[in-house]
């Protein structure tokens, strides 16, 4: 296991190194000593961007993992099951009501709406028969799409379409120093979930087992949902919706290393971060000097992996 932590950490460090030196402005390793401008560029743009991708990817993967435990279904994740869209709705509403609102207020309200929409999703899932496991992600996608349509509707009415396109398709090109720091809060949230990792693993075994082991089921679920909503809201506020990371990463890790979250959550976070950072780097390089948003790259890669998972695991996924 420790071996894998090292491997994950190394991959992440390697990608971060590349990320620092890839971009429109040419930058080589040697410039660090020769050119003071180079350091400024790294401080203002490259470093924040790299950190943002690492945090967003890592925390989203953790959030997806926790959500899969809470819902007891492997094919859900916050960004496609209404949580991310709920956050976007919250930001939109704040922007319309009080355009001058601070980013902190926007984030708080986005977290609240994200929590409300995730509670709604959970309430729907509760009514579904356990014999149809694929119905859950299906309902999630439609539910998320519906809230997304509501966001578009409101945006049209308020003439804010260009705003929401930023939130609905995540990208890191706008990340600069001073504009991404909220993400550290998401990182803190994800780190806190690690302390409750055992509890989420137990909740993943169902309400009866949870109660029998002396845990308050509803309380654990609520704590998990709050963490998910916070992470989603912070990500949407700063970089927009990043799809599929939270879905495919926990699935792959679970396949390889099982569901003992205390052991696997760090791997989930590292792989989520690597996938997102790698996709961002790819998006920067493919059509150099133009950029392809990370949401688009992951839309392609993630959907393809999702389909593969869907057919690899016939039923009791």
């Amino acid at each position: 296991m420790t071996r894998w932590y090292w491997a994950g950490g190394f991959a992440l460090a390697f990608l971060s190194f590349i990320s620092i030196f890839v971009g429109v402005i040419d930058l080589s390793f040697g410039d660090l000593w020769r050119d003071p401008e180079a350091l400024r560029l790294i401080g203002i743009s490259r470093f924040p961007r790299t950190i943002a991708a690492v945090i967003a990817g890592g925390t989203l993967a953790v959030a997806g993992c926790v959500m899969q435990m809470l819902v007891r279904n492997r094919f859900v994740e916050p960004m496609t099951a209404g949580t991310g869209q709920g956050a976007a709705l919250g930001i939109l509403v704040v922007t319309i009501l009080t355009p001058q609102a601070s980013i902190f207020l926007k984030m708080s309200l986005a977290s609240v709406t994200a929590l409300v929409t995730s509670l709604g999703f959970l309430a729907i899932v509760r009514r579904l028969p356990p014999t149809q496991p694929l119905l859950v992600p299906l309902i999630g996608l439609v539910y998320g799409g519906l809230i997304g349509a509501a966001v578009v509707f409101v945006a049209y009415q308020a003439d804010l379409l260009q705003f929401i396109s930023v939130w609905l398709n995540g990208e890191f090109s706008g990340v600069l120093r001073g504009r991404y720091e909220l993400l550290w809060l998401a990182a803190a949230g994800a780190a806190l979930t690690y302390f409750a990792a055992d509890q989420f693993a137990i909740v993943g075994m169902g309400q009866a087992v949870t109660t029998s082991l002396g845990l308050n089921y509803k309380q654990v679920v609520l704590v998990g949902l709050i963490a998910i909503s916070l992470i989603s809201a912070l990500t949407v506020v700063t970089v927009g919706i990043i799809p599929f990371v939270g879905l495919v990463v926990p699935n792959i890790i679970s396949r390889l290393f099982g569901d003992n979250l205390r052991r696997t959550l760090p791997l989930v976070a590292m792989m989520g971060a690597s996938l997102t950072l790698g996709s961002d780097i790819a998006g920067r390089l493919i059509r150099f000097p133009f950029e392809v948003p990370v949401g688009t790259v992951l839309g392609v890669v993630g959907a393809a992996i999702f389909l593969w998972l869907l057919y690899r695991t016939p039923r009791y996924a």
Binding site: M205, G258, D259
Partner: peptide, 15 residues
């Protein structure tokens, strides 16, 4: 007091 519930249909991937 502990309870062994009826077996869940979804089994965790734990050793």
């Amino acid at each position: 007091l502990s309870i062994l519930p009826q077996m869940p249909d979804q089994v965790p991937r734990l050793c």
